[in-house]
């Protein structure tokens, strides 16, 4: 039977993959993909917890089922989209400047 732990495990794997992606890509867009993976992992967690824990607790207290997990997930999706747009804009600018998308070159800000 599929339980909460299965979703948590899936989310953990996605999170790990996202982290690994960020650490092993030189292409800035690849890193962006890693970020998306991590955000998705978080979303899976939120939605799963919402179903398994929070909704029922609210019902048990006589209220309507809670949907806070879903709300958070929704905002995350929105913010992810916004973040992707900004990031891609930055990458385009970066590309215009360096003719490459290799983040190894992005060290102008170093101290």
């Amino acid at each position: 039977m599929i339980g909460l732990s299965h979703f948590l495990a899936l989310s953990a794997i996605l999170f790990g993959c996202g982290a690994a992606t960020i650490l092993t890509k030189r292409n800035a867009i690849g890193i962006l993909m890693g970020v998306e993976l991590i955000l998705n992992a978080a979303n899976v967690n939120l939605v799963a917890f919402n179903l398994y824990n929070w909704a029922g607790e609210a019902v048990a207290q006589g209220a309507a089922p809670a949907v806070d997990g879903l709300m958070f997930a929704m905002f995350i999706i929105v913010l992810a989209a916004a973040e992707a747009a900004i990031a891609l804009a930055i990458f385009l600018n970066f590309y215009n400047h360096f003719s490459t998308i290799d983040i190894e070159r992005a060290r102008m800000l170093r101290g």
Binding site: I22, I31, I103, R110, G111
Partner: peptide, 14 residues
């Protein structure tokens, strides 16, 4: 660690 290497920052974060 302060060398502006993005991946280093991320690594430290993780």
């Amino acid at each position: 660690t302060q060398a502006g290497n993005i991946r280093m920052y991320v690594l430290i974060l993780f």
